[in-house]
Amino acid sequence: MTIALSPHAPLSLIEVMQELISNLRPTSGASTPSYRRAVESDELWDGTRAIEAAQQRTYQHASAVDINGSRFGDFIPAVGVLSAQSTATDNPDYGMAALALAAENHDEQAFLAASAAIDWRRRDATDFLQAIQWALAAGAHRAASVLALRGAELHPDADKLLTAARVLAPQTTPAAYQSADSSVTLNRSWLKAHRQEYRGRWVALSGGNLLGNAITLEELTSRFGVNPQILYTRVF
């Protein structure tokens, strides 16, 4: 199979892959710091930068390619795969570096690809917690849930992971019901009638009656308390 890459000369798919992988080699050699420095410092780790450059080149190639009947994207190695294939340094954590890069770029797709390349059974609780944070930064919210649940399952003694799993788990508790509340309609009618008058202010309403109004919610709750029968809302 031959594909035409502009402005490059025609290359085979294997040549494209080799070129991309060859660009992953960091420039700083075996003393490259771990992925954690890439996240904690303003300076990107060279290896991370190399992966990012390769990813950008991949997108440039993909945007320029002209092939019939195939989706070039199906043949582009994900950043996690690319990072796993790099052998440039002695002991950096390429998998986590790829997650960090995806988080920094707010790239959900890259995060998912990098996460899929990691053997999570061998990861400790700290790695799970860090990956959850990066998932949230990448916009990979469902992946954050999956990581939290998986991490809590593998590390049941890690309190922070248990909290993450509880917060991000799918909703399973049965719903609870109460009878309808007529004050909802009464409060709504009051707001409709007085919207212009109290615009921008917080109001406290009960049964369609105004209890008070203030600039802040705190002023009202300190006067009337947190009571399920009182509606606190800002008027717009």
């Binding site: 909703q171 609870a176 909802v184």
Partner: peptide
């Protein structure tokens, strides 16, 4: 950092009881 509505924001995530109030039928808590 959390990516929300195309914007990076800082904050905290909690699990809370949420009630949708009904004026007809039943109010529901999830």
């Amino acid at each position: 950092q959390v990516l929300l509505r195309g914007e990076i924001v800082r904050g905290a995530l909690y699990r809370v009881p949420l009630t949708i109030l009904a004026s007809e039928g039943e109010t529901i808590t999830i």
